[in-house]
Design a protein around this nucleic acid. Structure first.
Lengths: 155, 155
DNA sequence: TATTGTTATACTCTATAACTATA
DNA sequence: TATAGTTATAGAGTATAACAATA
């Protein structure tokens, strides 16, 4: 059945993409969680650690560790929040900005390279189908989670 | 450009698939590395820890930890190797076998559910395109790695 | 009272290095 | 001499809980 074939290709692609990315990041002195944090800074400008915790889906405690590491390696820096003395604003350094620009460009290049050799119509159909699969998956996951909650607390 | 759109869908799909899987595994008292190990046992029968280390791509030291955890939680067990007194054979327990069968069936069901609502021709085109994208990615990664090695040791 | 970020602690996965028992 | 698995140790990511400073 082709559905299984699509899922297996998706899983294989995930694995290869992630392994390649991890190798690249290590070469540059980064890790995936730290890069995720830098990406949020690259997209949304200087933000508080509480905002980062929410954005990347970890506890504030772990943001402390990630920012410590990124400060130590020169990719980000803390600055005092102008109005809230409890908070800090995390900024990209020049080095951090430069590496995010590089990775952004590499991402675009990879997007093009991956479909080299496929004709435009195939690319269009595939892009639409993947969008549909993603939407379907999100719906399935949401339904699944709802069912679990129901079983957990049948109030 | 649609190439970028495909890559972005792939990355989003990876993320949702992995998050959903992690949630499911936690509910069952498993983790991804432990499940990977169980999957190898499910596919290839009882094997040595050295074989497992090779198969799942971690050091033998870490297989010790993973098998310890799987023994403690009742999914796998060690047995003496019949001819090599240095080695142990890791077996699935009944519980381990049962959960792998369940997950195997869920995987198949997900494969079908994901493409529900797409017509057969679209599924066929998409499956072929993803296969092509996977092959292309593997080639790109291999070339990339070769270039890095070259730079590292220009003997 | 609520929020921001930190210290304290613990668990999982990963790695290298040194060691024991056995091939 | 080489291999199988372990103990020892370290680093990274994740979590909860308790706490200080500030809102």
């Amino acid at each position: 059945m082709s559905g299984t074939q699509i899922l297996d290709s998706l899983l294989a692609l995930s694995q290869v993409l992630e392994a390649d990315q991890a190798r690249e990041l290590e070469r540059r002195g980064l890790t995936q969680p730290r890069t995720h944090l830098l990406w949020v800074l690259y997209q949304g400008g200087p933000v508080t650690q509480a905002h980062l915790a929410e954005a990347i889906g970890v506890t504030p405690r772990n943001v402390t560790t990630l920012v410590d590491a990124l400060e130590a390696t020169g990719f980000a820096r803390r600055e005092a929040h102008p109005t809230d003395r409890r908070a800090v604003l995390v900024h990209l350094t020049e080095r951090g900005l430069s590496i995010m620009e590089t990775m952004d460009a590499e991402h675009d290049a990879l997007g093009s390279d991956l479909v080299a050799g496929l004709d435009d119509e195939t690319v269009r159909v595939t892009a639409d189908a993947l969008q549909h699969v993603l939407t379907t998956l999100q719906r399935l996951v949401a339904e699944h989670a709802a069912r679990q909650d129901e079983q957990a607390e049948p109030s």
